[in-house]
């Protein structure tokens, strides 16, 4: 084996930070690779790409990415990214974070950034629980699912993230699973090329925390489940894309519209000095 061989992704990862912290069977490695592949294929200058996250397993993604990367506080990736983008509109700013970070503690920021149509690329890895703290229920946990803080089954109604994104004003809304690597990569590439607030939800296995307690099997079993139960329905009303514990997973691109961004609309009285 030639040890000088360079992996084509090496310029985009911080190889000296490997191995990563993610558990066996976790979907994050795949999701991360899709992001890097999309960035690679997009032809964008990596030096003008920034990645921002909050806290959680997914929040660790920026730390492994060899572009400008900001690992901020829990829930606050979107407002931090908002500042970055508005201060330097040349930058392509991706927020790569988890469902708890973006929709529970940070939910208010999500809906407002979408409403303002801030030009941010939001990628949310939804594993239906708080993985890093050992698997507690969150705002996406399906009814009835067992977690360390819902030992009798979750009795809160979950958010439908794609519906929320669409209702809040996102110009691009899609959902894929960790299994859909080609479609997910293409989707991320599409959002790079699209101006405005875009949202991609990635349904992703968390076998160690969530899968185990809900008898979903190993990571591979979850992937099989995605393969057998995902239904691609482009363009449907995201209202009809609810998720539940053992049901079908509706995936696809639901929204793709154009409207002026925050920066397009802000008053222009003077060029910067």
């Amino acid at each position: 084996m030639n040890h000088n061989e360079v992996h084509p992704m090496d310029r985009l990862i911080r190889a000296d930070r490997m191995p990563h912290i993610w558990c066996p069977g976790c979907g994050l490695g795949t999701n991360f690779t899709c992001f890097l592949e999309a960035l690679n294929q997009s032809g964008l200058d990596p030096d003008k790409n920034v990645i921002v996250s909050g806290i959680g397993c997914t929040g660790r993604v920026p730390g492994y990415t060899n572009i400008d990367s900001y690992h901020t506080t829990h829930g606050r990736a979107i407002p931090f990214a908002t500042g970055l983008k508005l201060a330097n509109p040349e930058l392509t700013v991706t927020v790569f974070s988890g469902d708890g970070d973006l929709f529970a503690i940070g939910g208010n920021h999500f809906i407002h950034a979408a409403r303002r149509n801030i030009d941010l690329k939001i990628i949310c890895v939804n594993n239906f629980n708080y993985g890093m703290t050992g698997g507690q229920f969150g705002c996406t946990t399906p009814l009835g699912a067992k977690t360390t803080t819902s030992p009798y089954g979750n009795y809160e109604h979950p958010f439908n993230l794609v519906q929320m994104a669409a209702a809040s004003g996102a110009v691009y809304v899609a959902r894929w699973t960790s299994l859909h690597v080609r479609r997910l990569t293409n989707s991320i590439k599409e959002t790079f090329a699209k101006k405005g607030f875009t949202f991609i939800e990635i349904i992703s296995p968390c076998p160690v925390s969530f899968g185990r307690r809900n008898k979903l099997g190993e990571g591979l079993d979850e992937m099989k489940y995605y393969q057998e139960n995902s239904v691609i329905k482009h363009g449907i009303d995201p209202n009809e894309a609810d998720l539940n514990l053992n049901g079908k997973i509706i995936v696809g691109k639901f929204i793709d519209i154009d409207k002026p961004t925050f920066l397009d609309n802000q008053p222009k009285l003077q060029t910067p000095d």
Partner: peptide
């Protein structure tokens, strides 16, 4: 930019400053 709360305001200025402004 008028943010949705002061959590957001604080983070937005940290982001803007990180971009050099």
């Amino acid at each position: 930019i008028q943010m949705e709360d002061e959590l957001a305001s604080m983070n937005a200025i940290l982001g803007a400053s990180s971009a050099g402004v």
